[in-house]
Design a protein around this nucleic acid. Sequence first.
DNA 1: TTAGCAACGATATATCATATCATCTGATGT
DNA 2: ACATCAGATGATATGATATATCGTTGCTAA
Lengths: 151, 151
Amino acid sequence: MIHSKPSKNIQKICNAKGISLTQKRQNIFHILLSSKIPLSAYDLTDVYKNKFETAMPTMSIYRILEFLTASGLVHKLESTNKYIACSHLQCDHEHSNAQFLICNSCSGVEEITLTSELHKQIETGAEQTGFKVESLQFELHGTCKACLNTH
Amino acid sequence: MIHSKPSKNIQKICNAKGISLTQKRQNIFHILLSSKIPLSAYDLTDVYKNKFETAMPTMSIYRILEFLTASGLVHKLESTNKYIACSHLQCDHEHSNAQFLICNSCSGVEEITLTSELHKQIETGAEQTGFKVESLQFELHGTCKACLNTH
DNA sequence: TTAGCAACGATATATCATATCATCTGATGT
DNA sequence: ACATCAGATGATATGATATATCGTTGCTAA
Ligand SMILES: [Zn+2]
Ligand SMILES: [Zn+2]
Ligand SMILES: [Zn+2]
Ligand SMILES: [Zn+2]
C-alpha cells in the first residue's frame, strides 16, 4: 500500500488526543487536507482509487469520515453534504465557534472563528426563548475574495 | 380532489407577492403548516396520500417544495434535509436573518429572527476576509423549552 | 380556435447514507 | 509461539434524498 505523508504535526496531535490514526485514516485525511474544495464520500472513493491505486469501499470511507469528524480533524458541511479538513488543527481552540465561508463560485471554503462574544450573543438570543443550545454550525454562502477579484 | 383550507391570509399574501398558489401547492403548504415537525419530501408523499386520498408523485412534491421555498413560504432545514412552513408569513421582514432552533428531543423547530445588529456583525466578520456574504441560515440544535420541562 | 406556456405526471437515475455480518490485523497475556 | 480479543476494515444489501428528462394536461391569450 502506498502511504500518504501526514503533515508533520498531525500524528503528534493525534497522540496527544489519544486518537488512533491508522494508515487508511491518514490517507483519507491527507486527501482532504490537500483538496482545495470539500469532497463527498463518493468523491473520496474516486480520489482514493486514483491516488493510492487501491479501492477503498465507500462504506469504509463513511466510517473513517465519522471517526475523523468525531475526532475534530474533519468537518462535515451540512449545506452541501461534503467534508473538509479542519483548518485549525494546530490551535487548541474549541470548534463551537467555527464558521464556514463557502464560495458559490469556486466551492472553496474558509473556516473562520466567531468571536466568543458574538457566539455568546447568538446563544443568548436563542436561550431567551427557553431553548438550550447544544450545537451549532454556521455556514455562510457567498463569493470569496479570489472569485470577486477575477470578475 | 379534496381541497385544503388555506389560512385566511395566505392567498392574499400570495396575490400581493405575485405568487400563483395552485390547489396542489396549497395542499402541500397546508400540510407543512399543520405539521408540528419538519417533513421530508417523502414524508410529504405519505401524508399527502393519507390526507387527500390521492397520490402525488414525489417528483411533483419536490417541484412544489422548490416553488414554495423560492417564494419564501417554506424553508428547507439543511442540517436535517426537511422542510417547514415559514413562521413569519404575516410580517414583511426579510428572511436573510432567519435562525432555526431545532429540538433534538421532539424535532420541533422554532424560527426566530437575528437582530439586524447581530446579523451585520456576522457579515462584517466574514467580509473582513474579503468574502461577500450572499446567504446564511443558522440552524441551532438543542432542547426546546417544553422538552426541558418534561424531564 | 389554436398556439403557447406553466403545471403536473411518469419513469429513470443519480447521490448520499446506514445496517449487518464477515474477515483481517495487531496487541496482549500465557 | 500460540490463543484470545477488540478494533478496524471489507462485502453486500438496502434505505433515504434528490435531479434529469420527456410526455401530458389544462388554462389563457391572440
Ligand atoms: Zn475546524
Ligand atoms: Zn471562490
Ligand atoms: Zn421564515
Ligand atoms: Zn422539544
